[in-house]
Nucleic acid binder design. Structure first.
Length: 595
RNA sequence: GGGGGCGUGGUGAAGCUGGAGUUCACGCCGGCCUGUCAAGCCGGAGGUCGCGGGUUCGAGUCCCGUCGCCCCCGCCA
């Protein structure tokens, strides 16, 4: 492409270019003024090259050069030459050469910066977001933008090679109250009515299967109005796929090469395929989590057999009530009183009634607050069950099975989880239950209502044990996405709605349009959605998805750069038929946030 | 809704048991300097210690409240 301001790219210059007359353009990354000779590091997207301004050779250019400041946008004409002997910079890819400037133009000056462009200081994130366009010039964010682009490129290349059709779907869709909270958009032409932004393209991609597309993919923006986390924003991006005449195996075999291609592109590693699989039940039993981090052991062990008939009343009561006593071996580690107290407190905040710790002494005896309640056979059984050696710290929880597992699962992560993401342990978690039991003992659907159960009769007659044809992809304990085989039979769909407590009338008003579509020869189909932000986060070894999103929001959904969301004019509201509630108006009249 | 951490010149930090807005690094402004590359050396400017209240002779420091950011629980079919 024609670029009148430049004939070469800074980062690409090398010894082979010596003698070339070039025009370059970019930003002033650093200036070193020696009173005489002046060095300017010119940075652009491809890299950095040193520009030399020599007052003997060119007094006028030198005069201009002394007015340059950091991050001025400039154009430079000059000659590429080898650096004088002994002055090459081996730390710089272009360090063997420099550009002797014959002309410099300031394309655009820069105010003094709110923070340094290099990565040396951890700048307050609010400040980074306020000046995100400057943050994007910094090496970390620049690299993450490249990684994100290459991830999307690898996805598209691999999907196209597999014969998938990229289809985009609407972003103003019908609100479906179950699941996450919808982001709502008021309608002007139909006052009082609202669109929702899609939580996912779920129903549209199923309709594409009805429409004969057979193999669909899309890199789709999705919206869920729930509280923010390190890995959750109100809007995020998914690689969404769906295939007709597929079962789970079709999904896995289509997706695994995509993930492998992205890992190859960003990490230069070959992932071993196929990914391992684990059932949901086994994941919960061994790791206390439906998204196990399998990079380390420290697995949960059922200690019921050890404590059968125990004299330790707390555990005896748990077992008598049908609960679970389980434990982990946290391995050899320094234990101080405050550290152990901290673990007990942590277990309580996680919802456990208590936590029993035990340290194996050099002579094999157990040091533990409850040691006096445990007989010698129990102590020996405990050590054997947990594979304990002298110095090991053992942690035990007795509670309802679900609570005991989740607490131990969380402690396992606290104590064993690797700090970064050097290793990559992908795995499929399969055979999720149809329903999850919430804390009040009620059944709540674990997936959207278009997920096929293994058997509808089982779903109706034995809901707490029924399994669904749903699966998740997990890497290093991070949930990357989920999918399922879908219901393609409208009678089954109606039955499932009914079991989920959605009446025929309700199903008709909310999903009638979709149920009708299922009546016209719907192929069996299945699909998946991969969280792009999370995948790039892990591959770039970043601690949160904001680092791999160009313009993310803060935990309260605020954008410090644009001051969004913001109050709108009354006439805008009037056009939409919207009046703010009095208490909302009153709070707006008070102090504005952020001041 | 709940728990925790943080908030000090433009940036990042230190500031212990309450005693003058003190200190360090970077940046900024000015000067010196012809081979540096995070250039170096000299000088200078720059702060309502997030905000409000309280305790005290005296608060960056202690207490209460509040706002903002981050992490976690809840929530995320």
């Amino acid at each position: 492409m024609a670029e009148p301001l430049r004939t070469a790219r800074a980062g690409a210059l090398g010894e082979a270019d010596a003698g070339r007359e070039v025009r370059l353009a970019g930003w002033v990354a650093s200036i070193r003024d020696h009173g005489g000779v002046l060095f300017v590091d010119l940075r652009e997207a491809t890299g950095v090259v040193q520009v030399v301004i020599d007052p003997v050779a060119d007094p006028e250019v030198t005069e201009l050069g002394r007015t340059l400041r950091d991050e001025y946008c400039i154009a430079v004409s000059g000659t590429v030459r080898l650096r004088p002997p002994g002055t090459a910079n081996p730390d710089l890819p272009t360090g063997a050469v420099e550009v002797a400037a014959t002309a410099v133009i300031v394309l655009s000056p820069s105010d003094p910066l709110p923070f340094r462009i290099d990565d040396r200081a951890d700048v307050d994130e609010n400040r980074r977001l306020e000046y995100r366009y400057l943050d994007l010039r910094r090496p970390r964010m620049a690299a993450n933008l490249v990684a994100r682009s290459r991830a999307m490129g690898a996805m598209r290349t691999t999907m196209l090679a597999q014969g998938f059709l990229e289809v985009d779907t609407p972003t103003l869709v019908k609100s479906t109250p179950e699941g996450a909270r919808d982001v709502l958009v008021p309608s002007r032409l139909r006052q009082g009515s609202f669109y929702a932004l899609p939580q996912s393209p779920q129903l549209f991609k199923q309709l594409l299967m009805v429409g004969g597309v057979e193999r669909y993919y899309q890199i789709a923006r999705c919206y869920r109005d729930e509280d923010f986390r390190a890995d959750r924003q109100i809007e995020f991006t998914q690689l969404d796929i769906e295939g007709s005449f597929w079962d789970r195996e079709g999904v896995f075999s289509a997706l695994e090469p995509v993930i492998a291609a992205v890992a190859r592109e960003l990490r230069g590693v070959e992932l071993p395929l196929p990914f391992p699989r684990i059932t949901w039940h086994e994941a919960m039993r061994r790791y206390g989590s439906d998204k196990p981090d399998t990079r380390f052991g420290m697995e949960l062990v059922d200690l019921g057999p050890v404590f059968t008939g125990t004299g330790f009343q707390a555990f005896a009561a748990v077992l008598a009530a049908g609960g679970l006593v389980a434990g982990i071996n946290a391995g050899p580690r320094e234990t101080t009183r405050s550290m152990l107290d901290g673990l007990v407190e942590r277990a309580r905040t996680l919802g456990a009634k208590g936590l029993v710790w035990a340290v194996v002494e050099a002579d094999g005896t157990l040091r533990s607050p409850v040691a006096k309640h445990l007989g010698t056979p129990e102590q020996e059984g405990l050590k054997q069950a947990l594979g304990a050696a002298p110095g090991d710290l053992l942690l035990l929880v007795g509670d309802r099975a679900k609570a005991a597992r989740s607490v131990l699962g969380a402690l396992r992560l606290d104590l064993g989880r690797p700090g970064g993401h050097d290793a990559l342990d992908f795995l499929w978690v399969v055979d999720f239950p149809v329903f999850a039991v919430d804390d009040d003992g009620n059944l709540a659907p674990e997936h959207h209502p278009f997920t096929a159960p293994y058997r509808v009769e089982e779903m109706r007659n034995d809901p707490q044990n029924a399994l669904s044809r749903a699966y998740d992809l997990v890497v290093n304990g991070v949930e990357l996405g989920s999918g399922s085989e879908r219901i393609h039979d409208p009678r089954v769909q109606r039955e499932v709605f009914s079991i989920l407590g959605i009446s025929d009338a309700e199903a008709e008003s909310r999903f009638g349009w979709f149920m009708r579509a299922l009546r016209f020869g719907t192929p069996p189909h299945a699909g998946f959605a991969v969280g792009l932000d999370r995948l790039v986060m892990v591959l770039q070894d970043e601690p949160n998805i904001r680092e791999v999103m160009p313009f993310p929001k803060t935990q309260t959904g605020y954008d410090p750069m644009t001051d969004s969301p913001s109050v709108v004019d009354d006439h805008q509201l009037r056009e939409l038929g919207i009046d703010l509630r009095p208490e909302v108006r009153a709070s707006l009249a008070g102090e504005p946030p952020g001041s």
